[in-house]
Design a protein around this nucleic acid. Structure first.
Lengths: 344, 344
DNA sequence: CTGAAAGCGCTTACAG
DNA sequence: CTGAAAGCGCTTACAG
């Protein structure tokens, strides 16, 4: 492809200086030409570009950035990349950033605060343009202070921390719960209901549970408290907890809304194992990950559009709104499949 | 946390120069002290460190790297991060890199060659320490030449390109197929069998199909060619193809090995829709993603240990073996669940 | 339209 | 044990 001069090549990386002297012009000219600055003549630009190509020159963006103090990478700091919701968000974030020709650096905290702190420090040393953070469980004022101290723009995602003063991107928790409840309580007229899974005192969990309970009261239904239990944010934990409940003889409620699709997938598996059909226990997930269409029964879910959330976070980071504390979210959408008892 | 002097702080980012003058020492001393070089006295080191902390100084790694010509980030260039296999590999890669205090930059090609080429060029401009590439469909000699021209160390993953001369990390395709066949042909004594899904002329697909066919012949079985069809590398495509086959009345073979777990998930869904149990059509996946335990029936699969593959790729990149063309892979492992008809 | 020079924030011989 | 100076590869006023 690049038809590089092998003799010029072996001397390792070429610099602007190299192409300048090879052409008998100054580095300024090369720099200007390569950037396409109209101040250099078309003819010169062409010569410079040809020579750069011939020498196999490749622009050193880091050097340029050191000079201009521009940054070119953002971090996506998450508890678990292999969580589909996170991966789908990463997709959106990455798309947004690549439009600003920024890179997104992926970092896993594994829900470990020390790891998270270390990663944030490293991003600061890297002079990242900012970061999107899904806080590890237990993230509190100390961690947030440390983050603020780095002076990097940051947006918090998915797990809203009370009073953190950082821009936040996440689902509209109450709308999400309302949509799930409307379908389950209204369309399906379930009587005993529960909100299943999620991390115990994480804000979204608290918010959603509270909303759920108030919806239940408003509808005059009964909340199956034994099934209103927290789990870790993955299918395995959900499966384990739900299976145990069933094995212990705790009768599943007529309807359960799950804190996430991954949790719902675990619940569905437990229900399938026990031979309990949607008609007996209707389940609705939250998130709308791609996988939700592949379960049996198909998972009815309230989609919050993970890729869009990621994209939103990226845009917030790049173009920054003046004020902190902004909550942005898309309007959630019910995706009906079979797990709620529709279409069976 | 960092108890930074607010007056010092407002003048934006602090530099070594700032802490040096604040202390009345030279930048060399600061640099040496901060790096923990034993040549500077313990007392000085302590003073420097305290002052750096007080000023809220944060090390500028990029500047350092420009000087030392050391690189500190690697790219993971993939068709689709949201594919669980890829995400799990990313986990392993990230773990390996963070041990070398390197960052991994995630980049999605969406199977688009032009995007892939652009990303690789950007990584080169970034002076990445290297990259791990899952080649987009259609990647050929031109793309590989361009990659080579960047002079970055690269390791190819999952989709082996013939004669590319790059180190390769991926499953041992033949062993994987043998394991699946042994179980299906031996333990379950299936008679009509098929290899389902995967990208048509991608190397792993070709290799695995060939191995599958020769195993079939060796066992004197009959290959159900109508079910030996390619798909795109995701559940939706697999579901669509399998559903169509069933709808058209093409009787499923007694056993099918799927090119990946995601494809198997699609097949399982199609089979479930049609009410065809494992006893009638046994399916085995390949990959061993976490999700495989959550399907109904549970997916029997040949695990290739995605995180380890990612880690291996990272190590290969970092410590580089002298010779190209190295194929490294872990020994695949059969994980038995219900989709093959065991434990039902 | 082009060139010489300073500077981004570090590291690293080299003196002292 | 510490300091002065050069240099990594760029960009950007400032002259000419």
């Amino acid at each position: 492809m690049t038809d590089a001069d092998p003799t010029a090549r072996e001397g390792a990386a070429q610099t602007m200086q190299d192409v300048a002297s090879s052409l008998g012009v100054s580095v300024s000219t090369v720099s200007l030409a390569l950037r396409g600055n109209p101040v250099v003549s078309e003819a010169t630009r062409a010569r410079v570009q040809a020579e750069a190509l011939r020498l196999g020159y490749v622009y050193n963006r880091s050097a340029a950035n050191l000079r201009t103090k521009r940054r070119h990478l953002v971090g996506f700091v998450v508890p678990d990349v292999a969580n589909p919701f996170v991966a789908e968000s990463a997709l959106g974030l990455q798309a947004a950033m690549s439009e600003g020709s920024q890179f997104v650096v992926l970092a896993n905290t594994h829900e470990d605060l020390a790891v998270q702190t270390g990663i944030i420090r490293e991003l600061a040393e890297e002079r990242a343009a900012g970061l999107v953070l899904i806080p590890a469980i237990g993230t509190g004022p100390d961690e947030l202070d440390a983050l603020r101290a780095t002076q990097m723009p940051a947006v918090i995602m998915n797990r809203h921390l009370p009073g953190d003063r950082f821009p936040y991107v996440g689902a509209d928790d109450e709308a999400v719960v309302d949509i799930a409840c409307d379908h389950l309580f209204g369309v399906h007229a379930s009587r005993t209901v529960a909100y299943f899974g999620g991390i115990d005192d994480a804000v979204p969990h608290v918010l959603r549970r509270a909303r759920f309970s108030s919806n239940v009261r408003a509808a005059g239904l009964v909340e199956a408290m034994e099934w209103g239990v927290p789990t870790r944010p993955n299918s395995d934990s959900a499966y384990e907890v739900a299976s145990r409940l069933i094995a212990e003889g705790t009768r599943p409620p007529e309807a359960v809304v799950c804190h996430s699709d991954m949790i719902a997938i675990g619940v569905l598996k437990a229900l399938n194992d026990a031979g309990i059909p949607p008609a007996e226990c209707r389940v609705v997930g939250i998130d709308g990950i791609r996988l939700a269409s592949m379960t049996t029964p198909g998972l009815t879910t309230v989609s919050v559009h993970a890729p869009s959330l990621g994209r939103l976070a990226g845009e917030l980071l790049l173009h920054g709104t003046g004020d902190d504390e902004t909550v942005r979210s898309l309007v959630p959408q019910l995706v009906v499949r079979e797990s709620c008892g529709c279409r069976t």
